[in-house]
Amino acid sequence: MAATTIETVGQTSGASRLLRRLLAALGMTFLILFALVEIVPFVFTIANSFKCLPAINAGPWAFIPTSGFVECRDPATGSAIAASELTNGTTFRPSLEGYQTVVAENLPRWFLNSVIFAIAITILRLITDSLAGYALARIKFPGNRLIFFIILGTLMIPGVVLIIPRFLILKQLGLLNTYQGLIIPLAADAFGIFLMKQFFESIPKELEEAAEVDGANRFVTFFRIILPITTPALTALTIFSFQGQWNNFLDVLIIVGTDPNLWTLTLGLANLQGAGGETLIWNVFLAGAVITTLPMAIIFFSFQRYFVEGVSYSGLAGQ
């Protein structure tokens, strides 16, 4: 909302207007520069995912595809096509070999598992994290501080050392190689609770006090008053949680690693990458990277408008 004020406030003199323009230009330059730095690597990732293996090695810089897809192997002999025929300067002849290899695997199943897993965990976390975050931010109850410290503490544990103990617990509970086993241990996370707590603390107390005067209890206040105005925070939590689980490797590996039917995209692609010992099959690897990243990009793109919604809600709630 700072933006609004900058636009509307201030009896501007000529000099300050010039200063403002200058600042805006500076900000814009900064922004564009950073956006470029962040985007360029992905341009090359996408371009190289459409190449044959020899072409990636011969000309990784080439990023302009020329017309028509090509086969990477001579159909008669089965041997690879030479790089000199595939890439030249900034242009290259695109191929789908990387994507075909990925798709030939159990891709739909992995994709479905990734979706189920990420959505289930995200929904559960939205509930558990925001409830806990609210309690820690606003409700005074014995153990409040202690619990906050414990939650903060769990963030500080180096994850690698928990691999074996977690595996033992899940084995005791009979949850290995099940969907529940994958979802329950991740149904709440310290990062999310901490995030929500900090957000709730930045909301002025007056809103709840007003509700309390009206006789609403904590549950009503939380669901009716507080939750609707925290859309930006919930959006952020949704995105972080979904993204984290979409890319989660270690937990998935340990809990369902031995049952390929429960593998997620990350795990399946990691297995593809394992092929060939020292050598990374770049076109397959990059095609896999594009396929796993794309859904996340779409989700982020479609969710991000909710970042602005919180403001209008808060305007209403204040009346």
Partner: peptide
Amino acid sequence: VQLVPDFDTVLQTAFASGD
């Protein structure tokens, strides 16, 4: 047949559990 990624880690974990 179970061909798993990051095989050494998975196998070590299985050893530790005794199963």
